[in-house]
Design a protein around this nucleic acid. Structure first.
Lengths: 253, 253
DNA sequence: GTCTTGAAAAATGTATTCACTTGATAGAGG
DNA sequence: CCTCTATCAAGTGAATACATTTTTCAAGAC
């Protein structure tokens, strides 16, 4: 079976990122994976990809290797690349790992102290969240807005940790398909409010130069996201519509 | 300056690993980096490498990308790969990250429980350590022997955590040049004895299915290695022979 | 003397070609 | 009818050729 290559899931040339073709090809394939266009365990055929993306095999191979480095693909010699499978337990585990790592990041940030710019960035994110939550309820689009705010907070704190390896590992955790907090949880107003309060407290601990308190709070913060995920998963399962909705949610954007 | 390409640091064809050339090339270059044959910030020239290793540029490029994925190299479009710099603070940080990650691993292992084979592996490592420490002092080579035992213990526990991402991240921490516990610390008998006791206690916690205790113990265990590193570094600095001995120690094998 | 400019060299990016491995299929033999 | 084997198709691995970019360096202008 030559596989139906007509799935227009991968646009010919997304031309997304600057630099060279290999990089944009990498982005295209990554998006296809994270977006769920290609399923777990699926084998990625180099010639087929190169035809679809209208480039030669060379940048395709480069992209595949890069994605393997990011942990999204598996590689077997003489057998090429396959989409790595992330069973549910692994996804849940990713939150524990993220909790530990972001905890360390918060500790580092508290130890090192924040620069003026970092303070401004975080405070802006906190203020934006306050404003959004002021109304007491959510309207359409608010959740997406908060996702941005949330991301800004975490990114800023991570930057303040001033450790590249840590940043890369956390990024990997975020890129576990359907695992990122940006994709899944915080559906209800109350949850978001609670998490925003967490942000405030974490920031206070960091400003107060209380490294271990900052770490603990951040761990708890991320762990609570895991708890929400589990809750929403089991609830969805109870609705007997597990897989379907899960796929939907994954694409919430 | 065309750079003296005569440094015979990279053997033509280590032929080390099975599979394809790209993999063995990867190993060769990695060893060169970890062994300190190429210095931080240095640019890796593809054609030069391909000549030295007697292969074409294709597997060399593949290897470089793989190593960039491992975090050992930096990549800039149209500018190739450079050896990533790990300043001392980053190396020290790596121990904190490792402590957090291995802590999570210990917790997972305790939660999941150990299989018969895993138990056997760990107990063998513990027994081997006991035997080695029985004499009350170290002779030549004992330290190297214990390094193996230590590695076995940590590897077995990591395997018991049954989480691939975690394993990969910890491996990255271990591969931070001159950062691995296998390369540096545990010089004195007393230190080793203490750490071996840690192992026993961690194992007990895991067996007793006490996840959080296992995590805490493991964190402390790895953190103590960091402390030893810092101590030995500052002592060495005090000896006014900093750089020289540091290089030596890095190669202790 | 310094800065700008441009051309040549060198290095990376991409495409193409050939080589080798793998896997499937069909046919012969039991 | 099953099994083993040979052959071929398909896919990955590696090498080479070509394109584009970066870097160097020297010549010329201010």
């Amino acid at each position: 079976m030559t596989d139906q290559s007509d799935r227009t899931l991968l646009e010919p040339a997304a031309g997304s990122r600057a630099g060279n073709r290999a990089l944009s090809v990498t982005d295209s394939i990554r998006e296809a994976i994270l977006g769920g266009s290609v399923s777990a365990g699926e084998r990625l055929n180099e010639v087929q990809l190169s035809k679809t993306l209208a480039v030669s095999r060379t940048p395709v191979r480069a992209a595949l290797q890069a994605l393997a480095g990011e942990g999204l693909l598996d590689y077997a010699p003489n057998r090429g690349f396959t989409v790595r499978d992330f069973p549910l337990p692994a996804i849940v585990d990713a939150y524990d790992i993220r909790a530990a790592l972001e905890g360390v990041a918060a500790r580092f940030a508290a130890e090192r102290g924040l620069g003026a710019e970092e303070k401004a960035l975080i405070e802006r994110s906190l203020a934006a969240g306050d404003r959004l939550l002021e109304r007491g309820s959510f309207e359409a689009g608010d959740l997406t807005t908060y996702r941005g705010i949330n991301g800004d907070f975490h990114d800023a704190l991570l930057a303040a940790a001033r450790n590249r390896m840590l940043g890369e590992m956390i990024r990997i955790c975020h890129h576990v398909p359907v695992s990122s907090s940006r994709n899944i949880v915080a559906f209800e107003y109350r949850d978001v409010r609670r998490r925003h309060d967490d942000h405030h407290r974490i920031y206070e601990a960091v400003i107060a130069q209380e490294p271990w308190r900052a770490e603990m709070l951040m761990r708890e913060h991320v762990s609570s996201i895991k708890a929400s995920l589990i809750r929403s998963l089991s609830q969805r399962q109870a609705d007997h519509r597990g897989a379907l909705q899960a796929a939907e949610v994954g694409k919430i954007a």
